[in-house]
Amino acid sequence: MRSIVLTKGVPDFSEGAVSFDEDGHLERGKTPTVMNPNDKFAVQAALQTRVRHGGHVSGMSMGPPGYADVLKEAMETVYTDDNYLLSDRELAASDTWATAITLCAGLETYQEEVGDIDIVFAGFKSADGETGQTGPQTAWAMDWPIVTHVLALDIDPDERVLRAKRLVEGDIDEIETVEVPLPCFVVTDPEFEPTYRKASHRLTHKQLRAETEERAADHEEHLTTWNHEDLNLDPDYIGLDGSPTIVSSVDPIPKAPSEREATMIDPGDEDEMSEMLEEMQPYATGAGD
């Protein structure tokens, strides 16, 4: 089995890492870039496939040279064998369409130069754009079948078939089982959890982890960077020029007016505690009534 996992770098929106200016605009320069949180489920699915069926997993991302760190994270956490970064000034400011065209070119170049792909894994949306378009558009550009919201996977390499349980959201969530021929695209749901119930799978996992520690320490050696010429892409159809999306304006979300006030109470101080309880008394409902 040969899998590709697509990943993207996004601003680290976690508390303490993210930085906003006075107007509430994100300060990209001050906010570190991390792997898109939803992609972690995609890489876990790729790892599970690798552990169960063997083979090769490559990471691929489109973005500035700094995204190499995101790919390195993919190598460290889910043991990709090698990584491919599609990086070029001409690719800057791509929307989902231009990104999909570029990723498609990346996958095709990979097939020509490295080997035939069986499965492409992608996370279900990015933490910054939140469009959820790039995965499906790339599958469409490749003309491959796609299964989205995947919760669990079962692959039959001999029959070249992938069976997946997928979440169908609605008034009542349903779980649907689908079967698709390989090669295909798989978009994981955040509920995806890899399972390793066989001792041999866990031993393989442990072996991969040991091998990866050496590899990740020398990440540059395992990273290939392709520009638009390597990908045989016309600059008019990629980057900002190739992006049909027009963003007219962005309104910051106004801050909620705050009327709350907080008092710190030492739980060891009996007087303060009983004062607080007295103040809360009128609002007490339920228990004891």
Binding site: D156, K198, S200, L203
Partner: peptide, 15 residues
């Protein structure tokens, strides 16, 4: 390790 069958849920065997 030999596996009687991965897909049918049979048990793994070690010496």
């Amino acid at each position: 390790m030999s596996t009687e069958s991965d897909d049918t849920g049979e048990y793994e065997h070690y010496e």
